[in-house]
């Protein structure tokens, strides 16, 4: 991909169905130009993972994804030894020289590559997506520092392995915990937030093209209004799309406050939030009359 400016990058991402604003495009462009990992933060559902997926498609890179969770360790993220195969090797080699076997057992043949090692060893260009890093433990975060700074990993039995083709690394986080300065310093930072009304209309238009223009605008205006309420979880972009599709499936041509009961659970995920919105809907309805 020959991207020479943030505008180019925004265009190629748009071709892949992802609309990015100018500021985020510039930051991402700089991260790619400097070959540095990019840390994308923001509330759930604003398109952090989708940005990485669209970038992989646009750059024609193989996507390697590591989903983080509490308790994730090196054997799941980087490498593990194939113990069954090692035992078989030992069974077959009872008569061989011990020193020879000892070396063989910890060679690449018995190594099981996990996502991080896979991205380092891959001969083809890859995009490594480390998704929801905030869910992992602090020890894992510290372990990543070598990979993020040098694009290399160290396996005690084998030594240091450097990347063959520098992977594009995207880390995402929902801010459930803060990261160390060391990790942040190694990354270029993007904060994605809810899109503006106009951008959300464009996103909805591209993601659900079968909606009428009236319904698209109505839904986006409604969601923008809902996001201003003090809710436990404001609706995300993906929920806006689902909500619009739900209304379309019900053959609605426009959004009327009185007709929304029953559809709100597509937009909001907590009963408390739904109750709050239902109460507000009555007020909004009287205001519009």
């Amino acid at each position: 991909m020959n991207v020479t400016s943030p505008l180019d990058l925004a265009q190629v991402l748009e071709e892949e169905g992802y609309l990015i604003d100018e500021e985020a495009a510039t930051t991402l462009f700089l991260a790619l130009a400097l070959q540095k990992p990019c840390l994308i933060e923001g509330p759930a559902g604003v398109g952090k993972t989708q940005l990485a997926l669209a970038l992989a498609r646009a750059e024609k890179r193989k996507l390697i994804r590591l989903q983080c969770y509490e308790g994730l360790d090196l054997t799941k993220a980087l490498y593990d030894w194939n113990y069954a195969k090692q035992l078989l090797r030992l069974q077959l080699a009872k008569t061989e020289d011990w020193n020879q076997i000892k070396v063989d057992l910890f060679s690449e043949e018995f190594l099981l590559s996990r996502p991080l090692l896979e991205s380092i060893l891959s001969p083809d260009p890859v995009l490594l997506l480390i998704d929801e890093l905030d869910k992992s433990d602090e020890e894992f975060e510290s372990f990543l520092l070598e990979l993020l700074a040098e694009f290399q990993v160290t396996i005690p039995e084998l030594g240091t392995i450097s990347s063959k083709t520098k992977p594009v690394v995207i880390l995402t986080s929902n801010n459930s915990r803060d990261f160390s300065d060391a990790l942040r310093r190694r990354c270029i930072h993007i904060y994605l937030t809810y899109p503006t009304l106009e951008r959300e209309i464009s996103i909805l238009g591209s993601q659900a093209p079968d909606l009428s223009a009236r319904l698209t605008r109505d839904v986006c205006e409604f969601v923008a209004k809902v996001r201003k309420l003090p809710l436990q979880k404001p609706p995300s972009v993906s929920e806006t799309i689902d909500f619009a599709r739900a209304l379309n499936a019900l053959h609605k041509e426009e959004l009327k406050y009185g007709d929304l009961l029953g559809t709100l659970s597509v937009l909001l995920k907590y009963p408390k939030d739904i109750a709050k919105l239902e109460e507000r809907l009555k007020k909004w309805e009287t205001e519009t009359r």
Binding site: T27, L30, L39, H189
Partner: peptide, 10 residues
């Protein structure tokens, strides 16, 4: 924009 992207990590 350039300086902000590089210098701001939080």
């Amino acid at each position: 924009q350039v300086v902000k992207s590089i210098f701001i990590h939080r």
